[in-house]
């Protein structure tokens, strides 16, 4: 169900929500967080769709705030519940003119009491998320440099202003690779990793973060190898004392091939992660991701320096 509200205020929206709950019981109970989505009009539907999927694992109230459009000052809104809103309710706020000036006051009456706030910029992100009016009120701030143009520069900007609680979805997109690589070191023979080669789209932020992470914790040289038309990471080679572990996911494939020095070959399904998958992972923990912070602010600059 979608309810349009024209020329309204946040407190009127809040009473409408209470009324909806009393009338239809249409509103989910036991929600664990409020998800603020700060988006361009063009990004809204894709973001709401991902948030709805995420709400099935993390029931949340989703509040989307779009940039103010020119026009007579005021606020338009839309409430979505039931089938249009996953396991949550979605509130879209479209401020006009000066009404968008203080976005924190737009959302404050609509926040779930006591529940943590997560702010997500599905598109362009501010340089300093923790200083944005909607970022300041949040425990966790999620950006997505992959959608920001020039990822490396964006990562550098985020690193400069990094605050505990900030993460970027590029980090979540590297988790499955990280898991497989870490797992391969859990097993004997426990030989050193002397060097690492990573192939793929060398501008992809996930590839850069993965390389920085490996270099930082394994204290081994990392080289990057550009692969034409690669959407993301296509391969990782660990050069070990007893031979190379080669992991390869060719362009256009969703299967990862692993060749071990012993001659044993494995195949694992490793499709590119969807936006919703990455968001769900990021919402799983609401405390600061310290490893990400270290990789972004220390490991990545070191890697960039070495590559230059």
């Amino acid at each position: 169900m979608k309810i349009q509200l024209h020329d309204t205020t946040s407190s009127k929206i809040a009473s409408q929500l209470v009324k909806l709950r009393e009338e239809g019981g249409a509103v989910a109970l036991g929600r664990v967080l409020t998800l603020l989505v700060v988006a361009d009009e063009d990004d809204v539907e894709e973001a709401v769709d991902a948030a709805n999927q995420a709400s099935r694992e993390h029931p949340c109230r989703v509040i989307v705030v779009t940039d103010a459009v020119p026009g007579a000052d005021g606020l338009d809104a839309e409430i979505r519940v039931g089938g249009d809103a996953g396991a949550s309710e979605v509130i879209l706020l479209h401020p006009r003119g000066a009404a968008g000036g203080d976005p924190d006051t737009l959302v404050t009456p609509l926040l779930l009491p006591d529940a943590p706030i997560v702010t997500w910029w599905p598109g362009a992100a501010p340089d300093d998320p923790s200083d944005h009016p909607l970022g300041r009120m949040a425990q966790r701030r999620i950006t997505d440099v992959m959608r920001c143009g020039h990822p490396l520069r964006s990562l550098a900007r985020l690193a400069e202003h990094h605050a505990p609680g900030d993460t970027d979805l590029a980090w979540a997109r590297a988790t499955l690779w990280r898991g497989l690589i870490a797992e391969s070191l859990d097993e004997p023979p426990y030989t050193r990793v002397d060097a690492i080669r990573i192939a793929g789209n060398t501008d992809h932020p996930s590839l850069l973060l993965l390389g920085a992470w490996l270099r930082y914790f394994l204290k081994a040289d990392v080289t990057l190898e550009a692969v034409e038309a690669a959407p993301a990471i296509t391969g990782v080679t660990l050069v070990r004392e007893n031979g190379n572990v080669v992991m390869e996911r060719p362009v256009d494939s969703t299967i990862l091939r692993i060749d071990e020095p012993t001659g044993i070959k494995h195949r694992v399904s490793l499709p590119l992660r969807t936006l919703a998958d990455s968001l769900i992972e990021d919402l799983r923990r609401l405390d600061p991701d310290e490893v990400y912070g270290e990789v972004l602010t220390k490991a990545l600059p070191e890697l960039v320096e070495e590559l230059a």
Binding site: G179, L185, Y190, V193, D194, R285
Partner: peptide
């Protein structure tokens, strides 16, 4: 000098890294 790897010692598994499956 590359990091030491041994049984139960995996430099990629940081205790704070709770994302890692």
């Amino acid at each position: 000098m590359p990091a030491r790897i041994a049984a139960g010692v995996n430099p990629l598994r940081q205790t704070q890294d709770r994302r890692l499956p």
